[in-house]
Design a protein around this nucleic acid. Structure first.
Length: 498
RNA sequence: GAGCCGCUAGCUCAGGGGUAGAGCAUCUGACUUUUAAUCAGAGGGUCGAGGGUUCAAAUCCCUCGCGGCUCACCA
């Protein structure tokens, strides 16, 4: 209590009011409150009625919410309360609620939770409102909310104190409600296709299934280091081996990499696997899934992302990576060539490559540096070089390439899929190649996973697999510029002053 | 990791060498259909932190912190 002298005027005023409420025998942090209506229900049921109709047949309601605005005029006043579905105006008159409750209304602050009883009416300008007959304080807010008109703009504070952002910025609330609907719709779609949703470990003893640096943690009782998963892949394939023919998981993965507008250390992936399917089946599934989610959630497949018009209606363009490179740059990488010749081509066309890169790496660099950003409309790029695809089947007609695709929309990768490699001998060779890359200094090359290889040796059916970055999909469908705008609590650096 | 920009009242922002400003919010008063209510008055600041230059620093310089954007990294 001795630090009360340090409190700002705002905090002092609210503490003072809290004390007064208690002195009047009112609990400022009340218990349950049973509502008959929320703002949405009132709006849908009564907004079409006229002022006169509502006056003739008054509708009694009990509702609750957070006080967002207050306009007092002597012995009466208006206030806006907000609940999950919206806002509604209250009209509080001294001669309707009595002297005692009117005093409480006079002292109540923006940000407080209130519960009211009253009747629905319309003001002379036609605004649907509640004429309050009983006024209760349900919970006192001890700090003031951000500016009622300008909201909360400070980006740092919006991320660090997302609850404030959600209270005062309705479009933020809308984005996260949409996020929830999108994920739900994906689940509904996959459930409709008879996929089984599963949960697999997020702590792995070998981080596999992708090329990325992992977070390391430690289990005390087992006295062993564990890695936060960088992908879901290898466990879901074990389930395919175990006889689950269609499985998926929507879950968090963790990558120990830089943070920017498209990367957060933890993010959400959808991975699914379908036995007996191949790349073509997964392409169809992907375009049907994403377009139907857009249709269900947004009501259209025609979307706008950062002023770019995108049509998600199937079928989407399918083009081999080498053909796409040829189309954009004019460079033909189809002919057989040495690694040195490939690097020379890159140098001649302004594609930065490292000296130890082989043909497959060069093809990938060409694609990433020259083609990727040009792919605005949904495009399946298939046939990635085998060297960068250690978990995908080889293309039977050209073993430099794999049965893999990535989906690009607005110049960004949105999905990654393969005809899954199910030959354990080939898989071992691919892992060994990865280990050689690792020893050569690529600390994101994959680590050999003996336990997974053993599983595959028991027999794995031909399988199609897919990974979709859910956060990026949400960004696309909500026209959000930063991944932080679709993550409720994005990763932030600690502040030293708190 | 690099470059650029930002950090001033609870919130939104002005002020860019002469000792701190506005709107909302807060406090006091008036007002019984207002809605960014209005009117009158009052209080509220370690100007991100630390150091330096100067008679004088929110302002100029240096270091650091946090954030944003761009680039690099992320196959």
């Amino acid at each position: 209590m001795s630090q009360e002298v340090d409190l700002t005027d705002q905090l002092q005023a609210r503490r003072e009011k809290l004390k007064e409420l208690r002195e009047q025998g009112i609990n400022p942090f009340g218990a349950r409150y049973e509502r008959t209506h929320d703002t949405e229900k009132i709006r849908t049921l009564y907004s079409s009625l006229t002022e006169e109709e509502l006056e003739e047949k008054p509708v009694p309601v009990v509702m609750a919410g957070r006080l967002m605005a207050k306009r007092r005029k002597g012995k009466a006043g208006f206030a806006d309360i907000q609940d999950f579905n919206g806002r509604i105006q209250l009209y509080v008159r001294k001669d309707n609620v009595g002297d005692e409750e009117y005093e409480i209304f006079k002292r109540i602050d923006i940000g407080d939770f209130v519960g009211v009883e009253g009747t629905v009416f319309k003001t002379h300008v036609g605004e649907l409102s509640i004429k309050v007959t009983k006024f209760n304080i349900l919970s006192k807010a001890m700090r003031p909310l951000p500016d009622k008109f300008h909201g909360l703009k400070d980006v740092e504070q919006r991320y660090r104190q997302r609850y404030l952002d959600l209270i005062v910025n309705p479009e933020v609330r809308k984005t996260f409600i949409l996020r929830s609907k999108i994920v739900q719709t994906i689940r509904d779609y996959l459930d409709g296709e008879s996929y089984l949703e599963v949960e697999t470990p997020t702590m792995h003893s070998i981080p596999g299934g992708a090329a990325a640096r992992p977070f390391i943690t430690h289990h005390n009782a087992l006295n062993m280091d564990l890695y936060m998963r960088i992908a879901i892949e290898l466990h879901l394939k074990r389930l395919i081996i175990g006889g689950f023919e269609k499985v998926y998981e929507i879950g968090r993965v963790y990558r120990n990499e830089g943070i920017d507008t498209k990367h957060n250390p933890e993010f959400t992936m959808l991975e699914l696997y379908a036995a007996y399917d191949d790349l073509r089946d997964i392409m169809s599934l992907t375009e049907n899934l994403i377009s139907s989610v857009a249709e269900k959630v947004l009501g259209t497949t025609e979307i706008t992302y950062e002023d770019k018009k995108v049509d998600l209606k199937p079928s989407w363009r399918r083009i081999h990576m080498v053909d796409a490179i040829k189309e954009v740059t004019g460079v033909d990488l189809w002919p057989e060539m040495s690694d040195e010749e490939a690097r020379k081509l890159a140098a001649d066309h302004g594609v930065a490559v490292k000296d130890d890169m082989i043909y497959g790496h060069v093809v990938n660099e060409f694609f990433e540096q020259k083609v990727e950003e040009t792919l605005v409309q949904p495009t399946f790029i298939y046939g990635h070089p085998v060297v960068i695809s250690p978990l995908a089947k080889k293309d039977p007609s050209d073993n430099r390439f794999s049965d893999r695709f990535e989906l690009f929309i607005v110049g960004r990768e949105h999905a990654n899929a393969f005809s899954e490699l199910n030959d354990p001998i080939d898989q071992r060779e691919r892992f060994e190649e990865q280990m050689r890359e690792r020893e050569a200094g690529n600390d994101e090359a994959q680590i050999i996973d003996e336990d997974f290889l053993e599983a595959m040796e028991y027999g794995m059916p031909p399988t199609g697999g897919l990974g979709i970055g859910i956060d990026r999909l949400i960004m696309l469908l909500t026209d959000s510029a930063s991944i932080r705008d679709v993550l409720l609590f994005p990763q932030m650096r600690n502040r030293e002053d708190k």
